[in-house]
Amino acid sequence: MSFINYMAREINCKLVYYGPGLCGKTTNLQYIYERTNPDAKGKMISLATETERTLFFDFLPLSLGEIRGFKTRFHLYTVPGQVFYDASRKLILKGVDGVIFVADSQIERTEANLESVENLRTNLAEQGYSLDKLPYVVQYNKRDLPNVASVEELRQMINPTNVPDYEAVARTGVGVFDTLKAVAKLVLTELRKGGT
């Protein structure tokens, strides 16, 4: 649910990075954080376990600039990927404006990707959202690893509805901003369509 503030002349949107455990959601945010001007970002918050696995969420506020005199601000969230944190994942999806599904391209993570994308669909539906109607992009991460599935295979499995998808190596930043820009564009386009 975007938040339009006429007083402050700004618009706030919520983006959520979803995906199986260790697929690179936090790494996406870390790269964005490192490569963004200090005046365009807030503090990045990570609620993680001692072993740096996301426990609740990561949060990064980002300003993208102005449209027609309104500052556009995006709140980026990740969810905890591990299966047993499902209750937390549901909470973070509340009020979401756009979703990025980060898939782990490694062949042995095929099952985990499928399970996670199904979980995303279910959790959204529980809150009355449909993944098919929400601004949604897919990122095939870890393309630099040797044992990866082909993009065609991944697309067939994870992205049957053919939403915009991107190859990425989040660790080095390949594809990270392309993915973010794509979903931000979809969210803004949706705002135009939706009106109030």
């Binding site: 649910m1 975007s2 938040f3 339009i4 503030n5 006429y6 007083m7 402050a8 404006d97 009355g128 959202y129 449909s130 109607k133 929400l134 705002l191 939706g194 109030t196």
Partner: peptide, 9 residues
């Protein structure tokens, strides 16, 4: 499905 929160002056 996604009503906006709006704040007026």
């Amino acid at each position: 499905i996604n009503p906006q929160m709006v704040m007026y002056e």
